[in-house]
Amino acid sequence: MRFSAATFAAAALLASIVGAAGQTSRENLVSLVREDCGSCHGLTLKGGLGPSLLPGALANKDAATLGEIILDGVSGTPMPPWRGLLSPEDARWIAENLKEGFPR
């Protein structure tokens, strides 16, 4: 019984992250990148088990390519596909902001 409560809470959490239009609020995206992408790329995004996501490290990749990497992952590496959790607009927004220097 506690489990169904847990499942409900998880669904509610997801619903709160992904808004009604399927697009995530900017604040939640910033938190997701810092906290969840940060578990491999570091809270400051300077890299960890995953590579650095600082602007200098991404200079040779355009935002469209980065957006696709976010959505589809990189096979043969631990980078997972975020499609399903993030919309293409979310991924593109993250990609563009990573290139600029990601907000805190």
Binding site: D36, S39, C40, L49, G73, P78, P80, P81, W82, L85
Partner: peptide, 9 residues
């Protein structure tokens, strides 16, 4: 089996 995406190691 399908490998489910791993969002955290």
């Amino acid at each position: 089996r399908n490998k489910i995406p791993v969002y955290k190691m």
